[in-house]
Amino acid sequence: MNVQTLQGPYRKPNTHLRIQSILYLNDQVDVERSIQNIHRACELAISDGCCGRITLAYGDCSPSPVLDDKFLKEWGEKFALPLNLDYHHFGENLGSAAGHNRLAGLSQDGDFLLIENPDVVPSPRLFEALLEPFRLPNVGMVEAKQLPIEHPKDYNKATGETDWATTACAMIPRAVFDELGGFDSRSFFLYCDDVDFSWLVREAGLKVIFQPSATVFHDKRLSSQNAGWQPTNAERYYSAEASMIMAHKWSRADLVQKYLKMYQAHGDDFQRKAAEAFVKRMDENNLPEPRDPKHRIGTFTGDLYTQHRYKL
């Protein structure tokens, strides 16, 4: 990849930023709160000279539209400038990876893509902070820090360099996204598409940066009993499925077997179903081609995809 092309659009008055979110049965109120704050961040980014044009694109995978016509008309009028609202109802549940790919494919606009969850609330000067690391060469992806629960994965305190970035809120140069073919939607539906994409970025010789001064609010809840994370059934299923696919794709056959046996023998209903689905894909030869045979990129640390600073 010609990384020199990445240095072009950093923080220029004509830089075009395209923000992408995939909707699926979201509450309109949550989306509204997010848009309100995105709008302010856009005003500041443009007035501070960080970029010149910003588009907010939604791909809605819900059976019926989350954002109705009235909402779109009102918010379109309210936020006509400087934020262009671009809403597409896909009418089918594509998952996050395929949803983002399709949404990105609908327009070639944008020097940068900001991939984010639709309920994320940005801090006012988020865009400036996320664009900042692109002043350096070889940066392929910059991730924001989530509040109130900061992701525990490790990063270099001085440079922000890290092994992978979540796409709850991450900035990617459009050229990098296109060059890598977007997310691997054939392999991943809901989870690990971001880990996989990050590793592809690093495989291409680019850096993944965690930018702790770029903050977004991403509402999460903790269990009252132990302050722990309580995954939903869907989360249990898709994260189990994704863990086996990741291990396969990044040439860790040992881990594939380990996870498979663990889910089959000790998993809950959802993890057992995920194991079944994985075996079926294996039988159908429907798995991605393994890569990184020397494990230069794929950093499996225990059951995690990189070293964590603490347990969550």
Binding site: A158, I209, S213, L222, Y310
Partner: peptide, 26 residues
């Protein structure tokens, strides 16, 4: 209810930021 978390101040990429250093403790 509050949970407690230890934090530190860091300069990442030349920008001041806050970094959590330990788990959320109940």
């Amino acid at each position: 209810v509050s949970v407690r978390q230890n934090i530190e101040r860091v300069q990442t990429g030349g920008r001041a930021a806050i970094r959590a250093v330990e788990t959320l403790e109940k």
